[in-house]
Simulated assay, not measured.
Amino acid sequence: MSAQAHVKKPGWITNKVFNPFVAFLTRRGLSVWGSRVLAVRGRKSGEWRTTPVNLLTVDGRQYLVAPRGHVQWTHNMRAAGGGRLLLGKRVDTFTAEEVADSEKPELLRAYLKRWKAEVGVFFNGVGPDSPEEDLRRIAPNHPVFRVTIEP
């Protein structure tokens, strides 16, 4: 099965109400549970593309997790190798390194502990209390990037 087969398209409410509302608040400096606006250059156009994301911190390291799977921002991130995280007027430029599937279970568990109510539907019944084998099974479907903020 191709990576695209695992993409979960957001519903109308998410696309038209929730994401724009979170992005609106985040652009004004109000982080909603770690929200940021991700800006990454398009791999074909070179134009800046933005989307709201949840910035996960585990053991002092920061990560971006793609709950909906291999979507446009993940393809752009692979090509660009980094981007910007926006919170109000604050702009953090970062580099990104994709995390290997074998490292993802701990990160997916932490992500689901924090945001399951918001994104749990995209993980096919796997939650923060699921067995390790379930997290390993879904790991290839959810890109994770380790973020390093540039000084």
Rank of each mutant, 00 (worst) to 15 (best):
H142C: 11
K44T: 09
D134S: 14
K113C: 11
Q62I: 00
R137S: 12
K9F: 08
T93M: 01
L86K: 07
A96Q: 03
T74M: 01
Y63N: 05
L107V: 15
E118Y: 14
N19C: 07
R78F: 01
V91Y: 02
E98I: 02
R114W: 03
A39R: 15
V99C: 11
N124A: 12
W48Q: 05
G127D: 15
F122Y: 12
G69K: 04
V53F: 02
E118R: 07
R68T: 02
A66K: 06
E132K: 03
R109M: 09
S45Y: 04
P52D: 04
R43Q: 07
K89Q: 15
R27P: 00
G81R: 09
P140E: 12
M1W: 14
P143H: 06
G60K: 14
D134H: 15
T51G: 00
A23S: 15
T51F: 00
E150H: 03
N124K: 14
S130L: 11
F21N: 02
F94P: 00
L86H: 09
L87W: 10
Q62R: 10
T148A: 06
T74G: 01
V32G: 02
H75E: 14
F94W: 06
K89W: 12
V144E: 07
I138F: 07
L25E: 08
W12C: 01
P131M: 13
N54Q: 11
I138M: 08
Q4E: 14
G11W: 12
R41Y: 11
I13E: 05
A139E: 09
G125R: 02
H6M: 05
L55Q: 07
Y63M: 04
P10W: 12
T14D: 13
M77F: 04
G127Y: 04
K44R: 10
L112A: 12
R109P: 04
R114I: 03
Y63P: 09
W33K: 08
V71W: 02
S45I: 01
R109C: 08
V71Q: 03
R49H: 12
Y111A: 14
G34W: 05
T51R: 03
K113G: 11
W12V: 12
A66R: 01
F145N: 06
Y111K: 06
W48Y: 04
K9E: 13
F24I: 00
A3T: 08
D134T: 00
Q62V: 00
L64K: 03
R146Q: 11
V53L: 15
R136W: 14
P20V: 07
T14L: 05
G82I: 01
L112M: 11
R137G: 02
F122I: 00
A110W: 02
P20K: 04
G34K: 07
P52F: 05
P20Y: 03
K113Q: 14
V71G: 01
A23T: 09
P151V: 14
T93P: 00
P67K: 08
L85Q: 12
M77L: 13
V22P: 08
W115V: 05
G69I: 10
A3E: 14
G88I: 07
R41Q: 13
